[in-house]
Design a protein around this nucleic acid. Structure first.
Length: 805
RNA sequence: GCGGGUGUAGCCGAACUGGUAUAGGCGCAGGACUUAGGAUCCUGUGGACUCUGUCCGUGAGGGUUCGAGUCCCUCCACCCGCACCA
């Protein structure tokens, strides 16, 4: 008997698969399409991360399983290569980003081929390839056409180290997601995509898409939908008639409003400057509080002297403040303060000795004297709302406001528009042109791509403008409308724009001159059937991709509104109990392990070490177990063969197929492998094995250890054919339900809930028969002979419980 | 503070609608085969004890139930999001 040589066997089959194009699908003819998508990697200089490998082999095993179940599985891969990460690295090692990218591309594809996934290598894509970013630019034009791309002066997140603007989603605890620098707030003109227009749809569809719950929860909190009302307050004291509009989720507490607060950026502050008596003081206050990014939540504020607002509910005059705890870009940038029922208003009121009027009482007991009452209850001090419940009061107040013309029901979202401008080099130039006469003009589609010029110096200079702004040959152009000299946009777009549509491009890589695949092809493949990826993208990529899909759907390009039928998040892979990181020195380099133990062992281990959803803990020792498992399988195929099949083994096999199938359906790869281990051990203990079972086992091993599976099938089972027919084109074994049921069962006997005996009985006994057997057990007798049995609980084929006095 | 998740052996982890807690793997111990083994195979492996049986055991404490890792209540610890969102 020869030992199994993983390295040579694996290499052999990988090259056969590639030569025979085993994993290519005909996108226009596949009768049972299944689009199996994974998150394309960011090709870092360090090479493929074990975390990527972890995600990819799980996703691949699922795709392979679906293929064996008879689907035409399309499993593409590409590189998300544009972006600050690679660019910073290139700057650091003082090499050109284009050369670095060429190198990482080669390295990544090499590594991705090594892991043995069933990728369709005829449809790769790279976001930095002009043939890709041409259509990313096209997407920008579509957004602009639909009025969803706009330019605005705004307070943006500025990373002083990366010297670029960041999206809200890229700021983690006030720090840059990439380099951890403290993010500053800066006023700049930027391009935005109006994702807020889709807030309601993004929110609502979450109820009907089959995604991991925790990702949906994260998106819900990010979108932050709140139902409430907009209410107008008249401002008295100035020479002009003006109003302050507020948003509140508690219109029921309007009678308890004792002051209004504006955000420091509120436009009314400028408009009413001349009417505000303490405007000098105000100017000082605003100067101090514009850059209020501090972590501490110290509330400061200033009363606007000479002005008061009229509470529409009771016509009472209330003071107006400006304060740092009011956000400019949420709701209306102004609030009505009800200190009796809001913690923040309470804090501010206490600090400034302002009036507090309780208007909600708990249904039982008294509210606390030194804290606001935040719960629901019934209304007091509220005129026509007195006695109403909170819920009822809300709707009655809204009707009343509407009737009187003071306000209306409204919904606010926490979601902000997506800032897509980046003052960097390594991204798609934004396809817009600024003309003195015509303003901003889109580049005609026919002129795409706007090629990224080959710059030798792409170091950001801190001017707040991207490297392209130093290249006249790039930005000097003519206005697409009036043909006078004009200036090209020199910002590039956010890498998240690149990844917001990559799954669409896989379907159209054979079309150079169009972004999207023909409609029939998209109808066939969309939405993506299964998308597996990390939950760190819950609110970045996974929200943008839904937004872009919805827009393209509304424009008539896509057959489906939502991009992914199913999304499943995998957990984090750690090593020896801690997060994998360079600083900890516990990096797992896949290459070394692949070379030493073989791909199949690594794949098996990554899927065996824990539940995909929870992540897992890599221990080098655990990998040895997989090598042993593979060797045991190999040894099983060296055993004497038999043609006949005994019923007991056949039943065992049926149960194993059942369990493995059910686990794979639920993405429980770890327990699926455990079942196969048990099966192999059992089959092996028989000493002889049937060809039928060996064939079934060879197929079932495929999703986890595809090379071994092919070797067993072709060589050990002699299934070689000409033309080549891979084991992946076989069918997942069927099992007979009746065979998967155990004939002999272990029946448990309890006395007062405690295990007293186990009996080996044939399945299907009724209570009478089972009870008789149980009572005759000596061990049981010991416990019931002197006591009176008052109750007997019987669970068929499982247990019987005698309850005594 | 809010939201989501997790807590089971020496370690990684199983356990379907409440029904044998600890499957599978690692490690460890003993044995076999060996010149040798860190290869392979077999056996054992939650703890305690008055040791062919009894008791205790799923983060802690209560509860429901014939029966709780699983359901309910009150806590604790850790991880991950969001965080002055009116």
């Amino acid at each position: 008997m020869t030992n199994y040589q993983p390295q040579s066997v694996e290499e052999k089959w990988r090259s056969v698969w590639e030569k025979e194009k085993v994993y290519q699908v005909d996108l226009d003819r596949a009768p049972r399409p299944f689009y199996n998508l994974m998150m394309f990697p960011y090709p870092s200089a360090e090479g493929l991360h074990i975390g990527n490998t972890y995600a990819f082999v799980h996703s691949d095993a699922y795709g392979r399983y679906m293929r064996l179940k008879g689907y035409d599985v399309f499993e593409p891969i590409g590189l998300d290569g544009f972006g600050i990460h690679s660019e910073n690295y290139a700057l650091k090692i003082k090499e050109h980003i284009r050369d670095v990218s060429a190198r990482t591309e080669k390295r990544f594809y090499g590594q991705l081929k090594l892991i043995g996934n069933a990728y369709d290598w005829s449809r790769t894509l790279e976001t930095y390839h002009p043939n890709y970013y041409r259509w990313t630019q096209w997407l920008f034009l579509k957004m602009y056409e639909k009025g969803l791309a706009y330019r605005r002066q705004s307070q943006v997140n500025w990373c002083p180290s990366c010297q670029t603007v960041l999206a809200d989603e890229q700021v983690i605890n006030g720090r840059c997601e990439r380099c951890q620098s403290l993010v500053e707030s800066k006023q700049m003109e930027q391009w935005f995509w109006k994702i807020t227009d889709y807030a309601e749809k993004l929110w609502r569809n979450l109820d009907r898409i089959d995604w991991s719950e925790e990702v949906k929860a994260a998106q819900r909190s990010w979108i932050g939908r709140s139902e409430g009302a907009r209410i107008n307050f008249l401002v008295k004291g100035g020479s002009r008639q003006s109003r302050i509009e507020v948003f509140t989720t508690r219109p029921d507490t309007l009678f308890g409003c004792t002051y209004l607060v504006l955000s420091p950026q509120h436009p009314l502050l400028k408009e009413l400057q001349s009417e505000i008596k303490n405007s000098n003081q105000l100017a000082d206050y605003l100067k101090q509080n514009t850059v209020s990014q501090e972590d501490d939540h110290q509330k400061t504020g200033l009363r606007l002297e000479g002005l008061v607002a009229i509470n529409p509910a009771n016509q009472k005059e209330v003071p107006i403040f400006v304060a740092n705890y009011i956000l400019a870009d949420y709701g209306t940038g102004a609030i009505m303060a009800v200190p009796a029922h809001d913690q923040r208003d309470w804090d501010f009121a206490k600090l400034n000795q302002l009036e507090i009027i309780p208007v909600v009482q708990p249904t039982q007991g008294q509210p606390s004297e030194d804290a606001p009452y935040l719960e629901d209850g019934f209304l007091i001090n509220s005129d026509f709302l007195n006695g109403c419940s909170t819920k009822e009061a809300k709707s009655r107040m809204i009707s009343w406001l509407k009737e009187k013309g003071y306000g209306r029901a409204d919904i606010s979202y926490r979601l902000r528009d997506w800032c897509v401008s980046r003052q960097r080099y390594w991204g798609p130039p934004i396809p817009m042109v600024y003309c003195q006469k015509c303003g901003w003009q889109p580049v005609p589609e026919s002129e795409l791509p706007i090629l990224l010029p080959d710059l030798n110096d792409f170091q950001p200079d801190g001017s707040g403008r991207g490297p392209l702004s130093k290249v006249p040959e790039f930005y000097e152009t003519r206005c697409p409308k009036c043909h006078q000299p004009a200036r090209r946009e020199t910002d590039v777009s956010d890498p998240f724009v690149d990844s917001s549509w990559f799954y669409l491009r896989y379907l159209s890589t054979d079309f150079e001159n169009q972004a999207l695949a023909p409609r029939e092809r998209m109808v066939r493949w969309l939405p993506v059937d299964m998308y597996i990826g990390g939950r760190e993208h819950s609110v970045l990529h996974l929200l943008y991709v839904r937004f872009v899909s919805m827009v393209l759907y509304d424009l008539g390009y896509l057959p489906e509104e939502e991009p992914f039928k199913k999304f499943r998040a995998h957990g984090l892979l750690i090593k020896d109990g801690s997060k994998i990181s360079k600083s900890r020195g516990n990096i797992v380099n896949p290459d070394e392990y692949l070379a030493e133990y073989g791909v199949d062992a690594v794949r098996l281990y990554l899927m065996f070490l824990g539940d995909m959803r929870q992540g897992g803990d890599w221990r080098d020792n655990g990998l040895k177990g997989m090598v042993r498992f593979i060797n045991r399988i190999w040894a099983l195929y060296q055993l004497p063969r038999q043609d006949s099949v005994d019923e007991e083994t056949d039943r065992m096999m049926a149960r194993a197929i059942k369990k493995t199938s059910e686990d794979l359906d639920q993405l429980k790869f770890n327990t699926a492998i455990a079942h196969l281990m048990t099966l192999v051990n059992q089959l092996k203990s028989k000493g002889k094995v049937s060809v039928k079972h060996l064939k079934q086992l060879a197929i079932m091993i495929g999703p986890f250890a595809p090379h071994l599976s092919e070797e067993l099938w072709q060589e050990q089972l002699g299934q070689k054919q000409d033309p080549f027919r891979s084991v992946v084109n076989q069918s997942w074994p069927q099992y007979d339900q009746s065979m998967a049921v155990k004939k002999q069962i272990t029946f448990v006997v309890q006395v007062d809930g405690k295990l007293r005996d186990r009996l080996e009985l044939s399945a299907g006994l009724d209570q009478l028969a089972a009870e008789k057997k149980a009572r005759s057990s000596e061990r049981v007798q010991k416990f019931i002979k002197d006591r009176k049995v008052t109750k007997v609980t019987f669970v068929p084929d499982r247990l019987i419980n005698f309850v005594t006095e």
